[in-house]
Amino acid sequence: MQEHWVVIKNLSFHRAERPIFQGVDINIPRGKITAIMGPSGCGKTTLLRLIGGQLLPEKGEIRVDGHLIPSLSRKQLYRVRREMGFLFQTGALFTNLSVFENVAFPLREHTDLPESFIRDVVLMKLEAVGLRGARDLMPNELSGGMARRVALARAIALDPKLIMYDEPFTGLDPLALGVIVKLIKELNTALGLTSILVSHDVQETLSIADYVYVIAEGRVVGEGTPEAMLQDKSPWVTQFIRGLPDGVVPFHYPTATDYKKDLYL
């Protein structure tokens, strides 16, 4: 049994001229919550899509549970994905299906379980996220926090080994936020999951992560336990963790023209 569930070596990826990753190495330890942090637009979501095989890297290795993701056939890839849960930022619930049917969807697609069994599993998953009472609602009747909890129940419906959270804290009110933070932590312990948490919300992330990577400008600029990150002296990490407006990451988007010239002064 290997120690790391996901191993990324020397990963490079471009998107239309712009380099997103240049030689990134990341190891995701089994059974832990690993946070990937970094400013918006640094490619955190891209990283998750690379791990899930929705994008192909230009260079480097991505291994999930020993499978070399970019070299898998379509069929093998879909098989490996059944072991992964993915929580989208928006929830991405199927809008034409009720809450119950949304959670039942992966079960119906991948198994031939009898209806009574599916019902039990769905209700158990919904109970885990505290929404058993909302099973008959449609996605457009849910608040943002509830939609994300339903999506979480759906992501764990097939009991995956790995779960990836894409910005799970964005746009939630403090109550919903607290619930999601608690759920991520509890699910990880209770189900023995390996979790990858992509976020730029420093407080919440540091409170539940076991290990943190900070990404900026296509590389890993800092890594360590949350305590170590708070002590870290490197300018990147300090600016990001403390939320300073100006530093290594300039406040201004780079421009070639002088401010005064731009204003015709």
Partner: peptide
Amino acid sequence: ATDQLASMEMMGVDPLWR
């Protein structure tokens, strides 16, 4: 646009046939 196709893919369900 609402990531429903992508989430299907990530669940291991091919949106082309589903």
